[in-house]
Amino acid sequence: MEYFLELILGGLTRGSIYALIALGYTMVYGIIQLINFAHGEIYMIGAFTALIFTSVLTLLGFNEIAVIVLASLAAVIYSSAYGYTVEKIAYMPLRRASRLSPLISAIGMSIFLQNYVLLAQTSDFLPFPNLIPEFEFIKPYRHIISSPEIVILITTSTAMILLTFLIKFTRTGKAMRATAQDRNMAMLVGVNVNRVISITFVIGSALAALGGVLIASHVGQINFYIGFVAGIKAFTAAVLGGIGSIPGAVLGALVLGLTESFATGYVSSDYEDVFAFGLLVLILIFKPAGILGRVTARKV
């Protein structure tokens, strides 16, 4: 029973991190119908930035709390900046092109960013410092849940509540929803569509960076390639929940996290990634619209 509980909590932790990344995919897809392949790389850059800033700040003699806050902030800022720039360079000139062009451009961007980090930094796995301190009150439950897991669960839920608030109740959120529904119509009623798209990329990238920092300090090592697998898994989550739908992405991510956790816990850990890919293929074949997605008829 305890093992079962441990697997559930582990799965939820995993799932909530996938959710942070999946939100970026689903938001971008909702607005410009593009699978942003470079999103996984944005997450990886977030993790790297956090690692670099942590090391530098620790050497400069800042105390622990300041290091955590400043490094996470730097990761969020830089990832957002990268997300913004990627959109301006690789996607904005292709707004009116056929659907294949931005997709190939996105794949190219992803390969470019991976190799950029590989060449500028290193191809080795770097140890990532454990940013999250050990809490006292968690000690008795130590065998079921660790304090990083609690921090991850709390941070992700807060981020998601804030995001929901932003999209439901602010002016920007309204503009985003309008653009997602009908871009031309939104333009006609005076929404600055380019700005809305930029904001979407910035928010998605910031969430991905948060996910990057949390998972890197939980797993304890990073390299230039982590974005690829994480990106595909988050995309799986987004598709599972119904791409374009924000609650769907969260739900899909949690389902994926739990599936992986149970599959590795009870079956075999060698095939961890195969389970995720297999799940993706199965959903797309049997229910391409996802759990919460709607089937839309295409008008000609």
Partner: peptide, 12 residues
């Protein structure tokens, strides 16, 4: 790095 850049530049 070049391959990635080529893909983006060609598409744009």
């Amino acid at each position: 790095l070049l391959f990635g850049a080529i893909m983006v530049i060609m598409m744009v």
